[in-house]
Design a protein around this nucleic acid. Sequence first.
DNA 1: CGGAGGTGCTTGCTTTTGCAAGCGCGCTTG
DNA 2: CAAGCGCGCTTGCAAAAGCAAGCACCTCCG
Lengths: 137, 137
Amino acid sequence: MTDLHLGPVRLAQLGAYIREQRESAQYSLRQLASVSGVSNPYLSQIERGLRKPSADVLQQLAKALQISAETLYVRAGLLDGEQGAAAEDGDERRGAEQPAERTGVLAAIAADPHLTPRQKNALREIYLSLRGQEGND
Amino acid sequence: MTDLHLGPVRLAQLGAYIREQRESAQYSLRQLASVSGVSNPYLSQIERGLRKPSADVLQQLAKALQISAETLYVRAGLLDGEQGAAAEDGDERRGAEQPAERTGVLAAIAADPHLTPRQKNALREIYLSLRGQEGND
DNA sequence: CGGAGGTGCTTGCTTTTGCAAGCGCGCTTG
DNA sequence: CAAGCGCGCTTGCAAAAGCAAGCACCTCCG
């Protein structure tokens, strides 16, 4: 019963998220499979929550979908697994402050001259994921 | 020839790093195996660069060694693979600007009331990894 | 209506991951 | 000296990951 093991519900949620992102990007399953290098039957299984993809596969999908790998890792419980696990436990602390955009961290990330835009996006998504999980289900 | 595939050299480096951390923590191989939940023969193979561990295993090791999983993920090429690959080129610019601690991002992370200490550490390490790697180009 | 093309999925297989059982070695103790 | 213990490692195996081949279905076009 560790936070390292993704339950079937979490797997299904990860898969649904990936499908969501794919549809937002207006890719068919085969198209995303081709762009990402993951086989289409396996991608189908992932999206349906039947298989647990490795971090390598998540990285490939993230690249193809032009989202940060960290976003998928958080969803897969590979980053901040405890928070992820806590979130799964139905933590009721919903009231994450919306004004997250006003916090110093986001402003500082945006203003940082040493990061590329890509790095800023990755860091922002990680930060928002951390913020969101602390306050979400 | 993508950055997603860990070459044998990188695997050996990852393993050496894990062994280094283990020795710093003054664990024997069997002790770390026991604490982390990874079998001792498998840990031996990982440290010798013979096997490529999954993110789950890296997470278990990171927890047992009390380092952030992100640190191992970067080393394993699972985070910021491009920069990680660049780092492998043996760039000697280790001395990333120390004054990074003065930048708004680190200060903002430290001051952020919504993140747990653990989350702050994770975000800091990611940021510093990004900073350090950006400096390599 | 039939054919072509695209879709998502099923199945059986290969490769990879991760471990249990056990090995050889060196050190300590009686 | 022999036994016991801890060490790191080898080997063979089971489970899981990931894919190729092929299926059924749907839509569109001639």
